[in-house]
Simulated scan of single mutants.
Amino acid sequence: MSRVRVAGFGVSLDGFGAGSEQSLTDPLGKRGKDLFQWYFHTRTFCSMVGQEGGSVGDIDDVFASRAMENFGAFILGRNMFGPVRGPWPDDSWKGWWGDNPPYHAPTFVLTHYEREPIVMEGGTTFYFVTGGIEEALDRAKKAAGTKDIKIGGGVSTVRQYLQAGLIDSLHIVSAPILLGTGEALFDGLDLRGLGYSVTDRKVSEYATHLTLERG
């Protein structure tokens, strides 16, 4: 059965899922990359960026691999897709990832401004959804078939789907860092009240992997 999941989402000890001041040079905001030190050393990440090496089979690599497995569609917020704000000035921006993004499946981008779909290499097509989170999820479910849908971020998008109780499983990676400022993932959310509980916990040298499920 198809499920709606968040997977491989880094969060600092002080609760931030991204740094402040996103820009072309800091896609995840200031110090945002520090949230993913658990990920960069894995074979999964190295393979994705065309590099050899990386750890194989350790806790981090297992979770990194799972974070991209069995997804038939993805949903991203506008800020996750890029730093452009307001109306699209033109069609030049096609995401952070180059000609072959890592999704390899239909990917739905939440936005207030219409834009034609973008067909990329490797099976990724970006569709721009102006009707909100439920419209994006309906379209993603139809595209995914029996596979899962991944809510890929950013923080605001994950928060909206959590608040609506639309996420079945949430894998967060608690990184042993303090960002101080940024985008708070859980601020104002009563996860227990929304039906979520921690169902799994694994600790690596780099982070603590926590799985939350909605009962």
Score class of each variant (00 low, 15 high):
D61R: 01
I75M: 01
E52C: 04
K33I: 13
N79A: 15
C46Y: 02
R78M: 08
D58T: 03
Q37I: 09
R43E: 11
D91N: 14
G53T: 06
D91S: 15
F40V: 14
D91W: 12
L76K: 11
P83M: 07
D34M: 14
P83T: 10
M80K: 14
D26P: 07
L35A: 00
H41W: 08
G32E: 07
F45T: 02
G57Y: 05
W88I: 11
G29K: 04
D91G: 09
W96T: 01
R85H: 15
P89L: 09
N79I: 13
Q37D: 13
G50S: 05
K30L: 13
G82A: 13
N79F: 08
L28Q: 06
M80C: 13
M48R: 14
G82Q: 12
V62C: 12
V56C: 11
I75C: 02
P83D: 06
D26A: 15
V56Y: 13
W88K: 01
F74W: 13
M68S: 13
D58K: 04
G95Q: 05
D60L: 07
Y39H: 14
P83Y: 07
F36V: 02
R85K: 15
D34C: 09
W38F: 03
W88N: 08
M80P: 05
G29V: 06
G86A: 12
W96A: 07
T42G: 06
K94H: 06
Y39A: 09
G77R: 02
D58G: 11
R43P: 09
W96S: 04
